[in-house]
Design a binder for these strands. Structure first.
Lengths: 338, 338
DNA sequence: CCCGTAGATGTAATCGATTCCACGCGTCAC
DNA sequence: GTGACGCGTGGAATCGATTACATCTACGGG
């Protein structure tokens, strides 16, 4: 593969001049520029990004560490992150942590070894040592969706409290009184926040959230199934199950079906995180939708601001309730579009 | 950030010795090794992968260029690719082409500029110039799922002909005679192959595949919707629609619903590419399932073989039919598990 | 006792870019 | 006429690693 030296030789100039042409530095004669460009064309030369990175100490690459690529929410997040990054001239390397702290650490380490310019993280746990070190050492970093308290790292996320309140109002209006939740891991902010929001909203209606109605999940479908089975085995099962993410809602749906029961007739179901598929399930699932694309784009902008020396900003979006049919028929006026 | 020089100074040895310890070269004294390791620990030193790559001319990184990350089939493929690559000591950079040749080119260029060790591609079109150049220039490359004829590049894919035959048999057994297909872009191998397989299978039953029943899609949901609407507007609409990928099937489902019609009662539906969600749609969708995980892993192994100097092998897996309820009730004996 | 050899280590070249510094030359102002 | 200045250019240092080659020491055999 041709190097800058070959181009210089071909054009009859020094490597310095070639470099100047390539980075369009002002002081290059038209003549030299033309010859260099011709040589570049003739040799099919492309600058070696590795060498350039070594010298300039920047890779124009962002790392994105997410908890689970197979979760459509994160897939969409990853997609929007890549799009915005590309628009700003950066590439993205995605690390899939699969909700495992050890994998998360592995990816953070690898990304740091590759000297990525900045890190976008949706932490799986309370914060692995590697990540904390990196944050404290000043690696440009932004948390997205989930975050770790006590670190001076901007957070881009969405607030679901209002939407959870709307959801509980909707459920209460439908006559439901025994509401249960499948929570996410307590170590994640989204895991605990959603439970708290739900509990608070219930309290407004004077409803309790008994321990028996608080199942512990891990954001994966299987845990949704397991917890839901537990609920159904209760002497007095809940009337509604609220899953703290979309995958667990799917597991819950499976569990209900496996018993030959029906949603919403025998058990109503709602989920946090809306995804396109929820329109097509039987029945369509009522969910709380985050502006996922906005989230990803804002996170990238914050990170790039930080990298390029501008002050980065935390951003909080607002999630909203999308009513479908999985909680029972609702008054037409309360109906959102599919 | 500490460099190898700092470590050398701290340990009181030369950088050469540090490098030897790090790459566990045999001729290093125990004493030196201990001191170096202590210095590494003390400084929290991590080798700079960029510098290492420049010198050794290998990045231990694979590029994966796929057509659409949001398509669950490709998401799963990407996930299995990353897993296998990690197991073999490689990282993966994913490029999402969004079925756009220009984006595909952009990603191939960027990946090549970064001097990735090898490229895994599921081409969007007949082959962009950049890719053809790279293939001919000897860049280690493997095609996965889709491929470009006439290139000396191993192909890892699955053969759906038998499954398509099974599908047609299933449909014929259910009494359907007017079968239509939503094809993918003719420029992609999967686009044209699936139509051919379908046509051939129909021929075995003496059934025609009229042009009116051959809709042109682009592997995206919207095209499935559009084509299906066209079918429904026909004086004699088909009884079954076979979508050449999962997203177009979803679009078709939407189109049927939008007219207040029902699947399979008014129009039966089947899809190529099975995904977990098809179990949960209303009705569950009959699909042809590829061993996606196997595909991804085999592709990585082939590519790494090529990179490390072993002869790479093309691999073809076999897809299989998974019968659900979207084509009508079928005899219990013919029922696959969900 | 000396030489050959093997093991441990250091010096320096190298990978492919960027960039500081110096140099030559032409132009312009005084 | 000359000094100052600016432009275009090239030489060489540099980024952080790897590795060929040289050097030195110790040890064993003849």
């Amino acid at each position: 593969m041709a190097s800058i030296k070959d181009v210089a030789a071909e054009a009859g100039v020094s490597v310095a001049t070639v470099s100047r042409v390539l980075n369009d530095h002002p002081s290059v004669s038209d003549d030299a520029r033309t010859r260099v460009l011709a040589a570049v064309e003739a040799l099919g030369y492309r600058p070696n990004a590795v060498a350039r990175s070594l010298r300039t100490d920047q890779t124009r690459t962002l790392g994105l560490v997410i908890s689970d690529v197979m979760n459509p929410y994160f897939t969409e997040l990853a997609r929007s992150v890549e799009e915005e990054a590309r628009a700003l001239g950066y590439s993205v390397i995605i690390g899939n942590a699969d909700e495992r702290p050890d994998l998360q650490d592995h990816h953070v380490t690898t990304l740091l070894d590759r000297r990525i310019d900045g890190l976008l993280v949706s932490p799986t746990d309370g914060g692995s040592p590697r990540m904390l070190d990196a944050a404290r050492a000043g690696t440009p970093m932004v948390f997205v969706d989930r975050w770790i308290p006590g670190l001076d790292v901007p957070v881009v996320r969405s607030d679901g409290r209002a939407a959870v309140r709307d959801l509980v109002a909707h459920l209460h209006g439908l006559g439901h009184r025994r509401l249960a939740i499948i929570a996410g891991p307590a170590a994640t902010t989204t895991g605990s926040e959603r439970v708290e929001a739900f509990r608070a909203a219930l309290a407004e209606y004077g409803l309790p959230l008994p321990d028996a109605y608080t199942g512990q999940g891990d954001f994966q479908a299987e845990s949704g199934r397991r917890v839901t089975e537990g609920f159904l085995d209760l002497p007095e099962p809940p009337e509604v199950v609220f899953a703290a993410d979309n995958l667990m809602a799917l597991g819950a749906l499976d569990a209900v079906r496996a018993r030959g029961l029906r949603v919403p007739h025998d058990l109503a179901l709602a989920a946090f995180d809306d995804i396109p598929w929820f329109v097509h399930t039987d029945p369509p699932i009522t969910a709380i939708a985050q502006p996922t694309g906005e989230l990803g784009r804002a996170a990238v902008r914050a990170l790039v601001d930080r990298i390029e020396g501008r002050p980065p900003q935390s951003v909080t979006f607002t999630a909203r309730l999308v009513v479908r049919r999985s909680c029972g028929e609702s008054p037409v006026t309360n109906r959102s579009q599919t």
